[in-house]
Simulated assay, not measured.
Amino acid sequence: MRVLGLTGSIGMGKSTTAKLFAEAGVPVYDADATVHKVYEGEAVPAIEAAFPGTTFDGKVDRAKLSAKVVGDAEAIRRLEAIVHPMLRSYHQKFLDDAERSGAPVAVIDVPLLFETGGDKRVDAVVVVTTSPDIQRERILARGTMSSEALDAILARQMPDEEKRKRADFVVDTSHGLDPVRARIHDILDQVVKMPPRRI
């Protein structure tokens, strides 16, 4: 089985691309959804103990937790030491299940794939991209983020140009869904012929 890492900056169309991989019959692991799951389950007691007042009603209050850890490298390390082992077990179970099901390809959807070294744990990387104008338009159209907040997020992410340089495959979402579907089928045809690479 080949494992594809799917990544791309905010507003590039990564979630839609992940859905289209699933539509093509590929098992897809959603890293963000798994974080939500542990923040509503097994991570809650340990996070409350390490960061008192950051949970409410049996769930992590992400805004309060964020206020305590953002900009504090030591706090981020403590949080990661709690959450990462839990996420790894979900990730491994997903890969084991996909392998057992006989899937030729599985997709790991991770927003910060390069930033966290996740590209070493996959056989090939797919970067989802669009033009900076379309990206900004899509995000601001959601009405949940200011232009300044968007700039702050983009400043923390690896630039799109750098991601595209490091990708094995690039998916451009600027022209609607049909070209993306066609590109996904190309990628699936090619990746099964590639040598395995993950560590």
Rank of each mutant, 00 (worst) to 15 (best):
G5D: 02
L113P: 08
V125I: 03
A149E: 00
T129Y: 15
K120G: 06
V192G: 05
P195K: 10
H185W: 10
G11I: 06
G53T: 03
L112M: 06
D123V: 09
T173N: 14
F114Q: 12
K165I: 03
K163P: 08
V35R: 14
Y39F: 07
E80L: 11
M158C: 02
V128P: 14
K68T: 13
R78F: 08
P104A: 14
T130V: 14
V126C: 12
K19S: 03
A141M: 08
F51K: 08
V69W: 02
A103S: 08
A182C: 13
V26N: 08
V170H: 14
Q157A: 09
E42Q: 04
V127Y: 11
A81C: 09
F51V: 01
V171L: 12
F51Q: 04
V171N: 00
K120D: 03
L140Q: 04
G8N: 05
K64G: 14
I187F: 13
F56K: 06
V69C: 04
E40Q: 12
V83N: 11
T116I: 11
R164Y: 07
Y90D: 03
T55F: 04
I187D: 14
P85V: 09
M86C: 00
D109Q: 10
K165Q: 12
P52D: 01
R142L: 08
K19T: 06
V105W: 02
G25R: 09
Q92F: 01
A106D: 12
R2M: 04
D30A: 06
S9R: 06
L188I: 04
D168G: 01
E40F: 09
E162Y: 07
L87T: 05
S147W: 12
I47P: 12
V107L: 03
R77H: 15
I82P: 15
K37T: 06
T116K: 10
V70N: 10
R198C: 09
V107G: 02
T16P: 00
F94P: 01
D133C: 15
G53F: 08
K64Y: 07
D168A: 14
P85G: 04
F169D: 10
A50M: 01
F169T: 15
V44N: 00
A106E: 02
L154V: 11
R136L: 13
H84N: 13
I199S: 12
K68M: 02
V126L: 02
V171W: 10
V70K: 12
A182V: 05
A75R: 02
K193N: 11
A103Q: 02
F51C: 13
F94S: 03
A31W: 13
Q135E: 10
E80T: 15
A106W: 00
S146Y: 03
M12E: 09
V180Q: 08
Q157R: 06
A75S: 11
K93W: 00
L188W: 07
Q157T: 13
S147Y: 06
G176Q: 08
I10E: 03
V192Q: 08
D119L: 07
L95F: 00
F21Q: 06
K64N: 15
D61I: 12
I10R: 04
A24W: 04
A49F: 08
D57N: 05
K64D: 15
M86E: 07
G143S: 10
V110I: 02
T130Y: 11
R183S: 10
I153H: 12
S101R: 00
T144F: 05
